[in-house]
Design a protein around this nucleic acid. Structure first.
Length: 359
DNA sequence: GTTGAAGACGTTTGCGCGAC
DNA sequence: GTCGCGCAAACGTCTTCAAC
């Protein structure tokens, strides 16, 4: 057994697991996981050496062209999956590009030669537990297989789409048709990964290639996307798009009862009388939430102007804003967002904002 | 000052229903 | 069968307040 250097948390004794704190539980889970993994890897390595030696004796494989194991060839995803994706939406990479799969040679970091039989191999995508691997960690088949999330027959397939199984074309493939049918809310870690492995059957004699594993991510219900807060709200957005105001929550009801239906109306009410607006929301609303709410609202994109103009060219902006009412145009001159911070060009607007924090 | 319980509210999701 | 919507419940976060 491998000796671990991790120390035992103070206060732990055998038989006290029932009273362990979550932190201690997490600590022991990690320790046990790493110990088990090291043991399994060691056994697997010993086993694979046996197999390789057996094959060499038998004269088959070893060269990586057919049969056996080829440690130099690996599957990989060349781009990252966003940390949150939504059910029913096709899975895309972080920048909106297609997810790209490559079978490459680790020796020269090049895509497999088009003449290689594996350059047109069939690939299968499965859902893996999100906690089990560090991104970039070399994955062995045992770890991979044991972390495949079991599918419950009553729930139907988790992954759907033409690209659940696909065939590499010249060693590469772009995934365009693959989506989740349900979210990861009920899974223990709430996170999963995609796993890709070559499909082996009696018709091919591919060498064994290590599977690929994506970064971990959450799958959320597509309705969460519809209800998402708008970091830079539009003037016509309903007030619940602001952080701290729940859809159909008390704050939205209080605001709508006074005719404040959208973000633009919220900002105008704030401009007119920030103290009254603050009082309308009640004492339960903390200063922190109020500040967050106002800061987000002040970033709004006015209904009549599709883009927000920075105030460093004030005269030019006033001319561009000629179509909106004067208060709105002047207000746009007074603030602008930069890395989430505001700069108030007009002292009265700054005073108004600061006063509203101390009601 | 610290800690923990209680409460308020927002977020997320499952489920059912009706429309198409 | 699929989609959109509303409702309700579970859960998470944050604040307040009393006890120490």
């Amino acid at each position: 057994m491998v000796q671990k250097s991790n120390s035992i948390p103070y206060g732990f004794a055998v038989g006290s697991a029932g009273s362990l704190s979550p932190k201690s539980m997490a600590f022991f889970e990690n320790v046990f996981r790493s110990i088990v993994r090291e043991e399994v890897d060691a056994q697997l390595k010993a086993h694979s050496v046996d197999v390789e030696e057996g094959k060499k004796v038998g004269g088959g494989g070893g060269g990586g062209e057919s049969g056996g194991t080829n440690e130099n060839l690996r599957l990989r995803l060349t781009n990252k999956i966003p940390s949150i994706i939504y059910t029913s939406n096709d899975i895309e990479a972080e920048n909106g590009e297609e997810l790209r799969v490559e079978l490459f040679d680790v020796v020269n970091d090049r895509i497999i030669d088009v003449t290689h039989p594996l350059s047109s191999a069939w690939i299968e995508i499965v859902v893996l537990d999100g906690e089990l691997f560090d991104h970039g960690e070399a994955i062995n088949h045992l770890d991979f297989d044991t972390s495949v999330v079991a599918q419950r027959p009553e729930e139907g397939p988790w992954l759907v789409g033409d690209d659940k199984r696909f065939r590499l074309q010249n060693g590469v493939y772009s995934i365009t048709n693959l989506s989740f049918t349900r979210n990861t809310f009920r899974s223990r870690t709430k996170k999963i990964r995609l796993g890709l492995r070559i499909i082996y059957d009696s018709n091919n004699n591919y060498p064994t290639i290590r599977p690929a594993v994506s970064n971990s991510f959450r799958v959320m219900d597509h309705r969460s996307q519809l209800n998402k807060k708008h970091h830079t709200p539009r003037g016509e957005d309903e007030v619940w798009r602001l952080k701290g105001i729940g859809r159909n929550g008390k704050y939205q009801k209080r605001l709508t009862s006074r005719g404040i239906l959208n973000v633009e109306a919220f900002v105008k009410a704030y401009q007119k009388d920030s103290r009254s607006l603050r009082k309308l929301l009640g004492n339960r609303l903390s200063d922190r939430k109020w500040k967050t709410m106002v800061e987000q609202a002040l970033q709004y994109v006015p209904i009549t102007i599709p883009t927000f103009h920075p105030p460093n060219v004030q005269q030019e902006n006033l001319e561009q804003n000629a179509g909106m009412d004067q208060n709105e145009a002047v207000f746009n001159q007074n603030i602008y967002a930069s890395n989430g911070n505001y700069e108030f060009q007009d002292q009265t607007v700054l005073d108004n904002f600061q006063d509203s924090l101390f009601i």
